[in-house]
Amino acid sequence: MADIAGVILAGGRATRMGGGDKGLRPLGDRRLIDHVIARLAPQVGAMALNANGDPARLAEFGLPILPDPIAGHPGPLAGVLAGLDWAAGAGIPAIVTAAADTPFFPEDLVARLSAAAGPKGLALAGSRDSDGKLWRQPTFGLWPVSLRHDLRAALEDGLRKVVLWTDRHEAGLAEFDATARDPFFNVNTPEDIRAAERLLEAQ
């Protein structure tokens, strides 16, 4: 969708993986972030990468590198804000975010989020497991640029939990089936890398 930009959230510290850029860990014949880029690129009109530290280490991707605009690693909402500020400068009305450690997210993510948008244009993804439990996925969302000043104020006021802010703004929910496999499976540990390898081989 040309009027929606994609922002890959890679600003975390990857403490359970021993630190460093988790998205650069190998998965199959590529890296985690390569899988994410390949899935998101066909769904959006432009892309950027939210990451902190020296941007030169990520220059090979040819994407704008957006550091958190709020100090202290306040979490994924800071990456969302970085993306919204960038999109505002580019004249793009909304962004969709995807986590850099989630290589199997849906190929219709952007379309489904757009269809589920709430009254303010905001939506989160969710996955329903085989027990019928619905899990919201706070790093996968549709975020309108019109809410960026409200988000900045909330972050500066200390808010960190994504769903507290999205509930405040009546976010819609795009629900995905996770009965066979959670499409939002994310890699947090070395054991998760091995599980992701098995999932990749099964595809």
Rank of each mutant, 00 (worst) to 15 (best):
D3Y: 10
G6R: 12
A14K: 00
R16A: 13
R16P: 00
M17F: 10
G19F: 06
R25A: 13
R25M: 03
R25Q: 11
P26Y: 15
P26A: 09
D29W: 09
R31A: 13
L32M: 02
I33P: 00
D34N: 15
H35S: 06
A41C: 09
A41P: 08
G45Q: 07
M47Q: 03
M47K: 03
N50H: 11
A51V: 04
D54T: 04
P55D: 06
P55A: 12
A56S: 11
R57A: 12
L58G: 01
A59C: 13
E60L: 11
E60R: 11
F61S: 09
F61L: 13
F61N: 05
P64I: 07
P64R: 12
I65N: 01
L66A: 10
P67Y: 03
P67K: 07
P67Q: 06
P69T: 06
P69W: 07
P69D: 01
P69R: 15
A71Q: 15
G72Q: 05
H73D: 12
H73I: 11
P74L: 06
G75L: 14
P76F: 10
L77N: 04
L77T: 15
A78T: 06
A82W: 05
G83F: 08
L84M: 08
D85C: 09
D85Q: 11
A90K: 12
G91M: 14
P93L: 10
I95T: 13
V96W: 12
T97H: 09
A100W: 00
P106F: 02
E107G: 13
V110S: 13
A111G: 08
L113F: 07
S114Y: 07
S114P: 00
A115K: 09
A115W: 12
A116R: 08
A117C: 02
G118P: 10
G121I: 13
L124P: 13
A125H: 02
G126V: 14
R128G: 05
R128Y: 08
R128K: 04
D129R: 15
S130Q: 12
S130T: 01
D131H: 03
D131G: 08
W135Q: 12
W135L: 11
P138E: 06
P138L: 15
T139Y: 07
G141S: 02
L142E: 14
V145T: 13
S146Y: 11
L147V: 14
L147F: 01
L147W: 02
L147C: 12
H149P: 00
D150Q: 12
D150W: 09
L151W: 00
L151F: 15
R152I: 09
A154L: 15
A154Y: 10
L155R: 12
L155Q: 02
D157W: 15
G158M: 03
K161N: 09
K161E: 01
V162Q: 07
L164T: 15
W165V: 04
T166E: 05
T166P: 15
T166W: 04
T166L: 14
T166R: 05
D167M: 01
R168W: 08
E170A: 10
A171H: 13
G172Y: 15
A178N: 07
A178Q: 08
T179N: 06
R181I: 09
P183I: 14
F184N: 07
F185K: 10
N186K: 03
V187M: 03
V187P: 00
T189F: 05
D192W: 08
I193T: 05
I193L: 01
E197Y: 08
L199D: 02
L200Q: 07
L200T: 01
E201M: 04
A202I: 06
